[in-house]
């Protein structure tokens, strides 16, 4: 195994070296140290699986992602890959009594996470349901926000990625382009995803979304603080999802949806910290998980005040 691994690496490195050399010769006239777009695209095409990369390779990878954003969107982003903090497992709890369906979380999520505009690319869905039922088939996904919320006789159910412990999506991916990180966040490497959408088929929460075309991102609206496995601008033909705002939460900040909620319905925190608010809720409120019978062990709970 070790042998075949080194052969594979050798092969990949060799190909990358040849490609870089060729493109370097081609680009020598431009007299710039910065690799050309072509060299970068060849390097991206041949790059190894993220979890097998060395520190140097990851350094190059992050620089390449920054150059890509500059070329495609004309913006200087910062792309980091802050790793999971030991002793942290993220969890989310949502108070349904407080949620009034303002959809502020959705707006904040789209801006924070550089989601494509005007294409319905939203990683949070707020469902409006008639009172007295939890039958999702009766839900309305497209209630207008301009109309006064909450509407009489309706309640609201926000749904996003539940960062399951037994994620059906990770199991479905044929090329391991998506995996669960040590802090519980399920991430996607947009440079490795082949765009087969089998994960979207598997997910019981409809939490995975596909970039059907090149994301539409106005330069001045781009969030420049990005994480490689999170909100860096995506390309056409790959999946994306909620990452609990990995670029913020791994640095000790709260997710954008939590901050944006005007009613304080959202509680985010470290499940391993006995003093955290989320632990208090799990221990003292009557919580439930959506579609628990699907057996995916979500890390997202709902509760009510009464």
């Amino acid at each position: 195994m070790a042998n075949s691994r080194s052969t594979r690496r050798g092969f990949l490195k060799g190909t990358v070296a040849i490609a870089t050399l060729t493109t370097a010769t081609l680009a020598s006239s431009s007299q710039s140290d910065e690799p050309t777009a072509f060299a970068d695209s060849i390097a991206s095409f041949l790059q190894d699986h993220y979890q097998r990369m060395s520190k140097d390779e990851i350094g190059e990878l992050l620089a390449r992602s920054e150059r890509r954003a500059k070329r495609e969107h004309g913006v200087d982003i910062k792309c980091h890959n802050t790793s999971a903090i030991t002793g942290v497992t993220f969890g989310y709890a949502l108070n349904l009594s407080k949620c009034k369906g303002t959809r502020r979380c959705v707006e904040a999520c789209v801006t924070e996470n550089n989601c494509s505009r005007n294409s319905n690319m939203e990683n949070i869905r707020v469902l409006s349901l008639p009172e007295g039922t939890r039958d999702l088939n009766q839900s309305d996904h497209y209630y207008g926000v301009e109309q006064k919320v909450p509407e009489a006789g309706r309640w609201y159910l926000p749904v996003q990625c539940h960062q399951c412990d037994e994620p059906a999506c990770v199991q479905a991916c044929p090329v391991e382009a998506t995996w669960k990180e040590a802090d519980g966040i399920v991430v996607i490497d947009y440079d490795w995803c082949i765009g087969c959408r089998n994960c979207a088929v598997a997910c019981p929460y409809w939490a995975r979304h596909f970039n059907w075309s090149k994301p539409n991102l106005p330069a001045k609206e781009i969030n420049k603080n990005t994480h490689y496995l999170g909100n860096r601008p995506r390309m056409a033909g790959v999946m994306e999802k909620c990452t609990f705002c990995i670029q913020r939460t791994r640095k000790g900040h709260l997710p954008a949806c939590q901050e944006a909620c005007p009613t304080g319905a959202r509680v985010f925190g470290n499940l391993l910290d006995p003093a955290s608010e989320i632990r208090y809720i799990l221990e003292n409120k009557n919580v439930f998980r959506l579609k628990e019978e699907q057996g995916t062990q979500p890390n997202f709970w709902y509760y009510t005040d009464v």
Partner: peptide
């Protein structure tokens, strides 16, 4: 033809 990134099929 159904793949979003058909060139990356070598990942399989």
């Amino acid at each position: 033809v159904d793949l979003g990134q058909p060139l990356r099929i070598w990942h399989a």
